[in-house]
């Protein structure tokens, strides 16, 4: 494996006045250019980890390196320039009065010269497919559109890593699809590293690798295929199993010939048809 872009070594963290650790001996690496999903139930530590990666919390013990910088107060601004976050609620992260002002906000804060700024705002909005909305006010946008603007605001700063902290959980299914396919394209075009923190397994299924957190520790790690084989165990962890896997099981119970766990509906529908009907 190449030099990881994020490395976390034996990290512990506890909130003030709490009896137990929110993060307990976490170690993990994130490779440059990969899409890593971190899943876990509410309270499993995933949001705490997200906040740590953005320098909102510091580990009590252990070490974190992000894009070549150790997670320490003196490097926090360097780190924040390289790791951009998209939060859950589209309405809480809109600061500009128009779409372009909103994207320009971060650039202005970073002292980017005006002519470069104008160009970057346009480029970023182009990339997320929101260029036509340059002068729109936020309340005219759908949730999915707002999140795409938030992503534009992040990529305008040309980060190495984009962290989605439950960024699709308040969107309707179409909005979620909009956002995730935008992220997929960006990742491919710009070699961005993507970390998505989520309990939506359809979102996690798009990642290259999934880490399951439970009670502040890494519980399991693997490809989406590996993780979804855990099946009932995922439900015990407060998570769910993707729809095609659940349906595949129900079909087997009805005596259908269905092999293995399918992660997409297309795979399942094809197998259902070819091995059970088309004879």
């Amino acid at each position: 494996m190449k030099e990881p872009i994020i490395s976390i070594r034996h990290v512990y963290f506890r909130y003030p006045e709490q009896q137990s650790d929110a993060l307990h001996d976490i170690s993990l690496d994130v490779a440059q250019g990969e899409w890593l999903a971190i899943v876990g139930h509410n309270g499993s530590g995933k949001s705490t980890l997200a906040k740590m990666l953005n320098g909102l919390h510091y580990p009590r013990e252990g070490e974190v390196m992000i894009s070549g910088f150790p997670l320490k107060e003196e490097y926090v601004w360097e780190i924040r320039r390289r790791l951009g976050m998209v939060f859950q609620n589209p309405d809480n992260q809109f600061v500009g009065t128009t779409v372009q002002d909103d994207v320009a906000f971060g650039l202005e804060n970073n002292g980017v010269p005006h002519d470069i700024m104008v160009r970057r705002v346009e480029e970023s909005l182009q990339r997320v497919g929101m260029l036509d909305f340059l002068n729109q006010e936020p309340h005219h946008l759908s949730g999915g559109q707002k999140q795409r603007v938030a992503i534009a605001g992040v990529i305008a700063l040309q980060p190495d890593i984009i962290l989605l902290d439950e960024a699709t959980s308040m969107l309707d299914p179409l909005g979620r699809e909009e956002v995730l396919s935008t992220v997929r394209e960006l990742k491919e075009e710009q070699k961005l590293t993507v970390i998505s923190i989520t309990h939506d397994l359809e979102e996690a299924a798009r990642a290259d690798r999934i880490i399951v957190l439970n009670q502040g520790s890494v519980y399991h790690e693997g490809t989406p295929d590996d993780i979804f084989q855990m099946n009932k165990e995922l439900i015990q962890l407060g998570l769910d199993v993707p729809f095609p896997i659940k349906l595949g099981e129900a079909l087997r119970r009805q005596g259908f010939d269905i092999q293995g766990g399918h992660l997409t509906e297309e795979e399942l529908v094809r197998e259902l048809w070819t091995s059970n009907f088309k004879k």
């Binding site: 509410n42 859950q88 959980s169 308040m170 407060g238 998570l239 769910d240």
Partner: peptide, 11 residues
């Protein structure tokens, strides 16, 4: 009104 927004699947 969207009573389960942001909760995990079990919740």
């Amino acid at each position: 009104d969207e009573p389960t927004a942001g909760l995990d699947p079990r919740g």
